[in-house]
Design a protein around this nucleic acid. Structure first.
Lengths: 147, 147
DNA sequence: TATTGTTATACTCTATAACTATA
DNA sequence: TATAGTTATAGAGTATAACAATA
């Protein structure tokens, strides 16, 4: 098998060190977020919903877009969160087919607690860096991920 | 409400920019990994199992430890992967209670494909950086997360 | 016709509790 | 007694397909 692969070239392995670090750091970050969510009887997805709706009123369809999930999944997520009193549905005034979702007071309060906890629980990681390093890391991540 | 909170001090907000970047980059990375897994009819957890077992034969209990999941969850995960022919169980020679798990040939092959795909699919992010920046980002992540 | 959302269905993921077998 | 693993159970997350209402 000395002929080159005609379909796809071999992957560039020069960034392998970064890829491993990104994957490991991401899993560690997700573990922190999942633990915070679980401590408040939320799934990671529900915590994301709170974060997304924290300062927005959006359509179900757009919530599905932000989360990258099917609309039927959103119906279930919103059902459960609504039953818990964290958010509400309301008809979209401009489109008779669409349904808006937005946080209740309790939802906003929980979203605030969550954001605060995320900052606290990631502090062991962030505080290992100087402020200059912290800014540099944030800038590199922003450039790599175009955020 | 001018009295300070007696329970916990307010979180240090100086690293907020980094926290936001970390969370967003982590979700983006997880989305890539989830898509790769889904394209091969794997869950993200199953893809992690393949990566963990790629060069190891370990006990069920240790697999639970790596994944941070309950042992009963591992039983189900291993059941399904075993049924698909990706891994095997075998008695642990040193402990009559323990069960080892290890990849089959098909499991190793799929783990290799997965690792290759992860590198390819994160290439849009990594290739936005110079090699010097890539090394610097990897080093900063490694230091923050102690990996 | 296309889009938005819901519902029914099926499967996976996950934890808790109860159990067996071994240390 | 403590540990390793399985099973039963229950609930959440997820997608697909079929459907109703609106654009």
């Amino acid at each position: 098998m000395t002929t080159p692969d005609p379909v796809a070239p071999p992957p560039d392995t020069s960034h392998q060190e970064l890829i491993d670090a990104l994957v490991q750091a991401s899993f560690a970050t997700m573990a922190v977020l999942s633990r915070i969510a679980a401590e408040h009887d939320l799934s990671l997805t529900q915590l994301r919903v709170l974060a997304i709706l924290r300062d927005r009123r959006i359509k179900m369809r757009d919530l599905a877009g932000y989360l990258g999930l099917d609309k039927s999944t959103i119906s279930g997520l919103v059902d459960r969160a609504e039953k818990r009193g964290l958010l509400q549905r309301a008809p979209n005034p401009a489109d008779g087919r669409a349904v808006d979702v937005f946080l209740t007071g309790a939802g906003v309060a929980l979203a605030d607690v969550g954001a605060d906890l995320v900052a606290r629980c990631l502090d062991p990681m962030t505080s290992r860096l100087t402020m200059a390093e912290s800014r540099r890391l944030a800038a590199l991540l922003a450039r790599a991920f175009e955020i």
